[in-house]
Design a protein around this nucleic acid. Sequence first.
DNA 1: AGATGATCCTGTATGC
DNA 2: TGCATACAGGATCATC
Length: 287
Amino acid sequence: MPELPEVESIRRTLEPVLAGRRVAAVDVRSPHCLAAPRDPGAFARALTGRRFARCERRGKYLLLWLDDGGALVVHLRMTGRLVYRPPAAAGAAAGGAGAAAAGDDRHLHLVIRLEGGGELRFGDVRKFGRLWLAAGEGDLPEGIRRLGPDPLGDGFTLARLERALAGGRRSVKAVLLDQEVLAGVGNIYADEALFLAGIHPARPAGAVGAAEAARLLAAVRQVLEEAVARGGTTFSDYRDGLGRPGGYGSTLRVYRREGQPCPRCGTPIAKVRLGGRAARFCPACQR
DNA sequence: AGATGATCCTGTATGC
DNA sequence: TGCATACAGGATCATC
């Protein structure tokens, strides 16, 4: 679920409330989600007493740096949530409606209590999300080291995209989803970018021309920037670092709109299965 | 190299 | 209503 815009929204909302805060206690409720260290006691002991500094995003990974150079790394995968709950709410009784924080407590897996009140809560319905405690840059999870450039940064150039596409027989959508080519695009924004660029998702990468590659690069940047500006896309699970849903859902042009008219030409949006996942596109606009 | 399917999980929607 | 099946935003691994 959380792709680049969602993780970026979490980063932006968490940084101001976490920076400078010290960990008072760590409650591991589901050891399952710990990638390193895997032992819940060791994880809790290692994190307790340390102080949060800056929050950084790399692709879909969130890095909560500690002021001693270590980092708490989080990947939310499909349904994970990382939400700060302020002291007032944390102290409130477990009352019905407003339990939006990190999902209902049934799926709450880790609670980091902060000195001075408030807590950071990690929840995940499907339990695919993972947390790592790293000693420093060289100790970050393997997946981070393999990430390609950030599509909103300077490293993602047209030359680089063309190189990734050149001669490739896999689909152009598979290239967009490859985190080693560019970091942060998932199913939603891959479909949206391909629509904006007018390229069929199943087109072999090697058959994408130079002009189309340029359009695709611009389209990827456009959809990601738009989505970041609106706080990401929420269907059911995603919430930002303060528990709020994203506002980009109503802007989506093809994702989850199969059967509805294409915003450009009115042709019904199609849905096919590509590489084991759904791909939505306009059969008239995208060739 | 790249496609495919299984896997990790639970919730929801759909069909019978 | 009950039950079975398919599917959902991600990433990794085995197999062909």
